[in-house]
Design a protein around this nucleic acid. Structure first.
Lengths: 326, 326
DNA sequence: TTGTACGCGTTATCAT
DNA sequence: ATGATAACGCGTACAA
């Protein structure tokens, strides 16, 4: 049924070796032969079996992408760009949603290794550092520094937190809340929190910090969190949310409560998702260079795969997008 | 370096055949041996090579997912559920964004075949019917009927269009616009358009139809389209948009123009994306059962792979979510 | 410029 | 209950 390199060889009247050579452009081959092979390839509709190739070459040209959840807009966009650049470099991407579930994450890592992927991009982060170091495969993490052995890529979280907080302070906010991602996950994103605290303390501003649940991105949880925040602190006049999704909830809650934005309450989000939910909302935000992050993640990983030595640390600049909520 | 089944066999003191048997639970094996193998597997940290397995078995347990763009919230969510159910059934998913580019789509199809995927879920749809039938692999399409040979899955587009249009008519709209997806793509989604036209004509309502560009989901294009629509038809009092993304643009444009919603203009969207951009926007919408679609797509495809005969046609019901824009 | 023969890691068929 | 060996489809020293 399936036509193999043998059939091709027979048809052309040479051996498989020669065919393989032609197909991979290795060594010397006569132009005449080249054409005959191409011809036969068309006629038989031959397609090389990548599985067999990978097995023989010990290289699958597949990279694994582990993220918490593609349906989160930040990761959706990141995934899009990763896929794009991976394809450009000749790699396929195997998509893995960990759902921030430790077991699924670990299982996926094993599965990826068993599948002989050439490398892994980790945008998820629940397993321990030790588990991580057992991976024994090219890996790059997004927004998390695991150890000195594993390259990571992130945007300048501290700077982002600083810019956001300073903006609110400049705009005369007197009591500012920071809604942070979960801090136990030990992401670099927690530097946004650090910058926030540094700035409000430096300026002697009253502040409050709350953090989201460790289990992911449930909008309803955000809703509750925000609701509770304003119940306990009705006098807030500034909010720095650690994602645009959260910021949207803040805007909604304020509308419900009848607080005018930006007159009474100012809101700054984070991420700057291009597909524009946020853009529609016109929320002031700190934009991460998601496309660039995806691109560099792929490039760094490919470098590792080719046993070059890519940078261990890649920190990309963020940008303030001031819109209608400040 | 890498430990293979041979190493295991040596260590345990049997042949690879026996090991393979134990690993795959085939035939009779003594309990004692079972334990020794498990023991050795742990000690050597052995992991079967899925590539070799797939090659030998002629089954990769990989399914290809071709969609226009994961960063579009509808597909992001669909992808999430597809990945979830695929994983549950023991399949990995290879992610392919066609970006609605005919060539990339075709290249990806070839790549997937070469990679020996067991089947393909097609959420993208630019290539021709003939090209499609050449695929010669289990395939299921989302929202497109290709031929009588290829199963498809969709929600009830006609009903959705009907419900949306009727709602606007019931609410006394006198001039209604429908912003449709591109009709040349020949998606089943065009039935929304058909239902719209049927209903407005039946009721003698003034109407106008515009359709989006064929090249994808650029928000800026939506913006222009909507802007132009209201320029040419400032007297619109109802809009049925074929996606929530577009509906959001309509809401924005109305705000810019100072049209009050829902008093002066009523808006109905489509999709009902759970992650809630729309939910935040509180746009009345027709909800597609995205999770169910993902689940059934995977199940149908797996059935095909196992050479059962799954249904050729799966049409799921939609639901009106009435919120604040009608 | 082309061919021979073996290896990649696993499964499957037939024996024993 | 376990083993020997071919097969899966391709790549690659080494030869010729």
């Amino acid at each position: 049924m399936t036509v193999t390199i043998k059939d091709l060889a027979e048809k052309v009247g040479v051996t498989v070796t020669t065919i393989s050579r032609v197909l991979n452009n290795r060594g010397y081959i006569s132009d005449d032969l080249k054409k005959r092979v191409q011809q036969a390839t068309k006629e038989l509709n031959y397609q090389p079996n990548e599985l067999a190739r990978s097995l023989s070459r010990k290289k699958s040209n597949i990279i694994g992408l582990i993220i918490p959840d593609v349906s989160h807009p930040f990761f959706a966009e990141l995934t899009k760009h990763i896929e794009y650049y991976a394809y450009e470099q000749g790699y396929k991407v195997l998509l893995c949603n960990s759902l921030l579930n430790k077991n699924k994450e670990r299982e996926y890592i094993d599965l990826l290794k068993a599948s002989q992927v050439d490398g892994i991009i980790m945008g998820s982060q629940t397993i321990s550092v030790e588990d991580f170091e057992l991976i024994n495969l090219p890996v790059i993490t997004i927004d998390r520094k695991i150890s000195n052995q594993i390259p990571y890529i992130c945007s300048d979280n501290y700077d982002g937190g600083k810019i956001a907080t300073e903006l609110l302070i400049d705009k005369k906010c007197k009591k500012i809340a920071h809604i942070s991602g979960n801090l136990q996950l030990n992401l670099l994103a927690k530097q946004r929190h650090e910058a926030f605290v540094d700035k409000v303390v430096q300026n002697g501003i009253e502040y409050v910090v709350v953090e989201t649940d460790i289990n992911g991105f449930d909008l309803k949880d955000y809703e509750k969190l925000v609701h509770k925040l304003f119940q306990e602190h009705p006098d807030l006049d500034g909010v720095f949310a650690s994602s645009d999704m959260i910021a949207m909830q803040v805007v909604n809650e304020c509308q419900k409560l009848g607080y005018r934005i930006p007159e009474q309450v100012k809101v700054v989000g984070y991420d700057g998702i291009a597909q524009g939910y946020n853009r529609n909302y016109m929320i002031t935000t700190i934009e991460q260079p998601i496309k660039e992050m995806g691109k560099l993640a792929v490039e760094n990983l490919v470098q590792q795969i080719l046993t070059k030595n890519p940078p261990m640390e890649t920190i990309l600049p963020v940008k303030l997008l001031e819109r209608e909520t400040t």
